[in-house]
Design a protein around this nucleic acid. Structure first.
Length: 312
DNA sequence: GTCCAGGTCGCGC
DNA sequence: GCGCGACATGGA
């Protein structure tokens, strides 16, 4: 095996204040899905990233500075040199992953009004980790449906290890696959290697549509699209139903809808209905007062319950 | 072996 | 619009 020289370039990203890096990084499951990983000792997210020109790099991102003057240090390991254009691409990717430009001040104001435990949120919590591309987030969200978390991790891991571009410093590490890489595989080979069950067809078809230009998922980031319109476009994707749509709206920075799944039902039942299961409509009404911030309120509610071991 | 998971689709009504 | 069975896969 040929040794490849790896160089290191340091970049930094300054998000809007307040910003709590570790909460953003670790408070939902995305950090555990390949090609992301959490380095406990360094308190850093590691990720293999394929840049648009084809270069594959290792990113190690960690939080620096206080919540009110935050920054994210990005250590880039790469072969050869990093052009200014590539550096800009990387900082844009990191900004998107950590929602560096997302302003939650209106939500924090609501939290302060509520008082008590909700005030904790205003210390920079709530900018939940997402992927550099909408494509990756849609694929991963489809992989969370009707399967336990271990199953999701396995599917995504196999997807990355089979179709991702390898990192030159360690060929075992790979980037998230491009739509082209998935689309150019035959469906049979894809289904057999990824073992995502009936989801394989949804993912493969989605990749074909994106690779051919028939579907522009990245256009869904446009803040000028109304939320109802966006919801319609998401629901039109095969494999994306109500739960996945709510999750994707969250990932696109819109918190109006609650992702109603078994976890939501169980949590609301335990915490608010004495173990009884109300209808979905009544369960969702628990967060009605949060208006366009329902998803974040629920996310914090359940996060707090589980971290304080309030529930088993 | 059996059940079902951070659901969704397609169908019939 | 709502109810219902089918759906791949693997862990409990």
């Amino acid at each position: 095996m040929k040794a490849v020289a790896i160089n290191v370039t340091h970049l930094s990203v300054v998000p809007l204040s307040p910003f709590d890096f570790e909460f953003s990084a670790t408070s939902h499951g995305w950090v555990d899905l390949a090609p992301n990983g959490w380095d406990k000792e360094r308190h850093a997210i590691q990720r293999i990233e394929g840049l648009s020109g084809g270069k594959v790099v290792l990113l190690q991102m960690t939080g620096i500075g206080p919540i009110k003057r935050p920054s994210i240090a990005v250590e880039v390991s790469h072969s050869g040199k990093l052009s200014p254009k590539q550096q800009n691409e990387i900082t844009a990717i990191v900004r998107r992953m950590f929602r560096a430009d997302e302003d939650l001040s209106e939500f924090y104001a609501l939290c302060k009004k509520r008082g008590r435990r909700w005030v904790k949120l205003t210390a920079g919590l709530g900018r939940l980790l997402r992927s550099p591309t909408v494509f990756e987030d849609v694929v991963k969200t489809i992989c969370t449906t009707n399967v336990q978390w271990g199953g999701t991790k396995g599917m995504v891991k196999r997807l990355v290890s089979t179709y991702g571009e390898p990192y030159p410093g360690d060929a075992d590490l790979r980037a998230f696959p491009t739509p082209q890489a998935i689309a150019s595989a035959s469906f049979g080979a894809f289904a057999e290697s990824v073992r995502a069950g009936y989801r394989s067809e949804y993912i493969h078809t989605l990749a074909e549509q994106v690779a051919s230009g028939k579907l522009d998922l990245e256009a869904l980031r446009d803040p000028d699209i109304s939320t109802p319109e966006l919801k319609k476009k998401l629901l039109a994707i095969k494999g994306v139903g109500n739960y996945a749509t709510a999750t994707l709206l969250m990932l696109l920075g819109r918190y109006d809808e609650l992702g109603v799944d078994t976890v939501f039902r169980e949590f609301v039942s335990q915490k608010y209905f004495d173990g009884q299961y109300p209808s979905d409509k009544i369960a969702q009404a628990v967060y009605e007062g949060w208006g366009k911030w329902k998803y974040l309120a629920y996310w914090f509610d359940i996060w707090q319950a589980y971290t304080s071991a309030e529930l088993g």
